[in-house]
């Protein structure tokens, strides 16, 4: 028998040696793969945590900016209003805060 014939015959006779998994093995593999590919990655988890925090900080920063601007404009307005005009000897003087 040649080497090739020997291997050809062994290949035929070895067919029953192919692994026959239990009936639930395929289902377990599918479920495991599905669970793992749908599971969020670390980057996605971090993004999930940081997105609302970043949004909150953004809103706080905008609110603070608006508040400072409003206070500044109020301050400027009140300076004009609070100036006092003093008249002395026919001359008038304006004294601001």
């Amino acid at each position: 028998m040649t080497d090739e014939t020997f291997f050809s015959r062994v290949r035929v006779d070895a067919a029953p040696l192919r692994y026959e998994p239990d009936p639930f093995a395929m289902a377990r593999i599918r479920a495991g793969v599905r669970e793992r590919i749908l599971r969020p990655t670390v980057a996605q988890l971090l993004a999930r945590w940081f997105r609302p925090i970043a949004a909150t900080l953004g809103i706080i920063a905008i609110a603070a900016g608006i508040s400072i601007a409003t206070i500044d404009s109020n301050d400027n307005g009140s300076m004009g209003d609070s100036s006092v005009e003093i008249v002395m000897a026919g001359d008038s003087y304006s004294v601001g805060q």
């Binding site: 998994p21 395929m26 599905r34």
Partner: peptide, 10 residues
């Protein structure tokens, strides 16, 4: 996965 799981497992 369904198509190839048996062969991959083997």
């Amino acid at each position: 996965v369904s198509l190839y799981s048996k062969r991959v497992l083997s």
